[in-house]
């Protein structure tokens, strides 16, 4: 049946007068090729983060601190200044930068293993201090880079390589809901959680990220945007099932929405 279909030519820009409305990558992503797995949600989140920087014209004052995870591959692919930190330590590194450059725009990019496992105290202390930085948490509920082991955000019943029959609270404990925790801190000005599992949520992600950036530029204090991302490789599901798995497994526990906003 597909043989009968007529496909449009998509190997070159249109001949008729047309405006470019969305380039392959936003201008702040310099290298489109990456080795992240098919169906990964992290590049989608990073795209949204970079588009928001571009739209708020923050590129000339931004320093981004990267943690360690799959997304670390993007540290070299961006046209914003980057500091590569250790696993879990990005918020304190960002703190040192922001204190010396109070007019700069400072953000971190971390995963759930990085921020919620290894570096939980860092992010909570930064939130409590009201450190005027923005932290982005790419939360997929597994250690993606090492191949799908349980993290502290893995939901009950979720199967990983180290919770083979599903996360059991008696054996593996309960998940940490990082954004909910951060939102309780008096120093946190903006905390929101969203996802990149469909186009609507991607748009919402970008909106939340933009609000977090604006919060920092207004000097309001600590801001955090948690982004639920797909990891079909670490979840052992088909790429096409990733968005639905996120909706059914992560989203019911890590609730999407703004948790703290001015």
């Amino acid at each position: 049946m597909s043989d009968e279909r007529i496909y449009l030519s998509t190997d070159s820009p249109p001949q008729e007068p047309a405006a470019l409305v969305d380039d392959f990558t936003p201008s702040l992503i310099t290298q489109a090729n990456h080795h992240l797995c098919p169906g990964c949600g992290e590049p989608i989140a990073i795209r949204a983060a970079m588009e928001a920087i571009e739209e708020l014209e923050l590129a000339h004052s931004t320093i981004t601190v990267f943690g360690i995870g799959c997304y670390t591959a993007f540290a070299h692919n961006l046209d914003v200044e980057v500091v590569q930190a250790l696993h879990g330590r990005a918020p304190s590194v960002a703190t040192g930068i922001k204190r010396m450059l109070p007019d700069g725009f400072v953000m971190t990019v971390q995963g759930d293993g990085d921020m919620v496992n290894e570096g939980l105290q860092e992010v909570l202390h930064a939130a409590a201090r009201g450190e005027n930085i923005t932290c982005l948490l790419l939360n997929n509920g597994v250690f993606g880079e090492t191949g799908g082991q349980m993290t502290t955000t893995t939901t009950l019943g979720q199967r990983t390589k180290t919770s083979i029959e599903g996360r059991d609270p008696h054996q593996h404990g309960h998940p940490i809901l990082l954004s909910d925790l951060a939102a309780t801190m008096d120093g946190a000005a903006y905390v929101a959680r969203c996802a990149v599992n469909n186009a609507g949520n991607v748009a919402r992600t970008k909106r939340y990220i933009t609000r977090a950036y604006e919060s920092q530029m207004a000097g309001a204090g600590f801001s955090l945007v948690e982004i639920l991302t797909m990891c079909p490789t670490g979840w052992f599901v088909d790429t096409l099932e990733g968005p639905e798995y996120l909706q059914d497994t992560l989203a019911p526990v890590h609730n999407i929405g703004e948790l703290k906003a001015p």
């Binding site: 047309a18 405006a19 470019l20 992503i29 949600g41 989608i44 186009a199």
Partner: peptide, 13 residues
């Protein structure tokens, strides 16, 4: 927006 591999370039006639 959803493509993880930045495959699409979109024009509007």
């Amino acid at each position: 927006q959803i493509c993880p591999d930045f495959v699409f370039q979109v024009y509007k006639y």
